[in-house]
Write a protein that binds this DNA or RNA. Sequence first.
DNA 1: CGGCTTTGTCCTGTGAGTGGAGAAAGTTGG
DNA 2: CCAACTTTCTCCACTCACAGGACAAAGCCG
Lengths: 396, 396
Amino acid sequence: MRRMTARPANAHQARLLKLLRDGGPNSRAQLGDQVDLSRSKLAVEVDRLLETGLVVADGLAASRGGRRSHNIRLAPGLRFLGVDIGATSVDVAVTNAELEILGHLNQPMDVREGPVAVFEQVLSMAAKLRASGLAEGFDGAGIGVPGPVRFPEGVPVAPPIMPGWDGFPVREALSQELGCPVMVDNDVNLMAMGEMHAGVARSVGDFLCVKIGTGIGCGIVAGGDVHRGTTGSAGDIGHIQAVPGGRPCACGNRGCLEAHFSGAALARDATEAAQQGRSVELATRLEANGALTAVDVAAAAAAGDATALDLIREGGDRVGQVIAGLVSFFNPGLVVIGGGVTGLGHTLLAAIRTQVYRQSLPLATGNLPIVLGELGPTAGVIGAARLISDHLFSPA
Amino acid sequence: MRRMTARPANAHQARLLKLLRDGGPNSRAQLGDQVDLSRSKLAVEVDRLLETGLVVADGLAASRGGRRSHNIRLAPGLRFLGVDIGATSVDVAVTNAELEILGHLNQPMDVREGPVAVFEQVLSMAAKLRASGLAEGFDGAGIGVPGPVRFPEGVPVAPPIMPGWDGFPVREALSQELGCPVMVDNDVNLMAMGEMHAGVARSVGDFLCVKIGTGIGCGIVAGGDVHRGTTGSAGDIGHIQAVPGGRPCACGNRGCLEAHFSGAALARDATEAAQQGRSVELATRLEANGALTAVDVAAAAAAGDATALDLIREGGDRVGQVIAGLVSFFNPGLVVIGGGVTGLGHTLLAAIRTQVYRQSLPLATGNLPIVLGELGPTAGVIGAARLISDHLFSPA
DNA sequence: CGGCTTTGTCCTGTGAGTGGAGAAAGTTGG
DNA sequence: CCAACTTTCTCCACTCACAGGACAAAGCCG
């Protein structure tokens, strides 16, 4: 099957496509209310979009007291692939043009196995989704990787936790394999885009999205756009000094945030606590599973284990301290906490809030919500789909 | 005399005005090379601008092998007023439309005397500049204040060091007094705009501009635009925690950057060192002047005084540590250091650089210049002039 | 003085966009 | 069942933005 070949011919068409993506099916009249174009001009552009096949008119809406309107919607056959490569697992999802998830697969996998192995995995997951009848092919794909990316080229640069990926032409390679356009970004940025599209950050222009998983990163959205920085490493807050003279970090410094709190650090601390007999709850789990993860700590905390709660609180204090600084600096309108540790829930959130509200200036925190992400593990893949749709729904 | 009444009628005209402002006089042909318009369309827009009087054609340029071109330039009579209100002094300058400083006055003054007293001072300085024949009137004024500003309204909000200004309608009041349009911003943002216009940050899209004076602030430029944050307090880094459990700060917390290093903190530390007999150089100056300022410390350091050098180095370490975090977070392409302490020069800069290059990730610092501002005390007033010219050179 | 170059103007054709008239397709009330 | 009113959508004529080529003006050089 031939996939989406057309692109919007001008800014008006691009605008209309994005309205239909974000707002769902609309009548011509409703679209007209949103785009500040005359009805005639609007009709012309809609007709052209219909000709290209990017949008279709299917059926009539219920009357609102007059002539019934035609439903204009994005072509129902459009399919985007969203890929979120984490440090320890891969998420792949298919969405329609409205970025609704039609199918979602998750697979544990170590990113350090390198691009070739991971690609094989991703492609087989994509094939499985296609085979299940959700898509006959993909019109575009977005992919997030856990490290800095030279965005225009779609190439990871100097990624600390995935050294084998340095300079690997992710965009080009995946585009070749899938036969469709591909865009690549940092996984944290995609999480931010996901929450902006369909999560807690809808209609917030400036916000921070802190992702705490194996490592720690921060998506920065300024004026509705993702800020990627000069070399694509913006948001890399894992190595900000949180504890002067603190623990040694893999990066060579001491006291980095990531060394004191992250999924990996938490697992290590919990294991240590279990081995030292400071927590029966954790020790039991360690014996049962052979190793501890953030999930175990969350479960122990939920069961009321004091040591687990302390670990979470202490970690939250560290992250909160760093976030407090970022809030003073950036003055966001919202802070979203997400990533693997979301399961730590309110204990973590409370610690972070305490630090931020105490340390940042009242003017910056006065009306600042600090909340958990709404989309969980789907934020990344939705953000990935949004990334490629933003690209395809822009004039060529 | 009637001042500038016209505004550009469309985006093309706005573009042309800004080209003429930033690039000086140009021929129609040269303009055509920069704007991607047909020569005919360009001629039409230039003619319309000539009609409005915003630009004039004066004289012919030298031939470059063919017909000589007309010089198109911004109206030579246009005058902007740039005002930079610091914590302890006021700068007022007149510029032409190209933002070149024609006259500049500086006056010590305590901002805490309140808006009425400061306004009186500013107006009298403006009158003096006008009386000296540099301007018959002002076509617009930009003004910077040392605190957060609700930008669209031009009103300071909850400014810590100038409590009497909270909610004072600076924009409206000054506009009334001067009889011209006025824009208000944070002084640090204006310094950043100044360095972007005519200083070290020309043609850098993402950079940070750290101003160390009585307090500490940071101008944030992302994608060529100043980031002001949700409540206008972005860049307020003075109260980021630099030393856990450190000195008490006026804000109620401990260890704030500003408490450990700023013009005020440095003066206090130097006085203490002098009184404790740790530095002959500083003690001599204290006796001579009755009080010490950053300038004294700079002079002592220049004379080789070890205590003064230590103070500067220690302060630079603190600031450098905070900046290192911001660099990791924001990934700028340039860091500019400015403000009153610029006199501390290379000792300070070296300390900052050491910290940043050591603590931030190589990818973010690999090609990151950290330099002193180029414009010194004129950065603020040039930025102020640029602010209002950006406003006036945009379609109404 | 005649070719060549550069700058600036004029003119015409094309296409984008507006706004009004009115057709199409409903609902509601008598 | 029909008239009056609403909402949606289409058609058409007119205006204006803009490009691109032809051409005039004004300089250079040999």
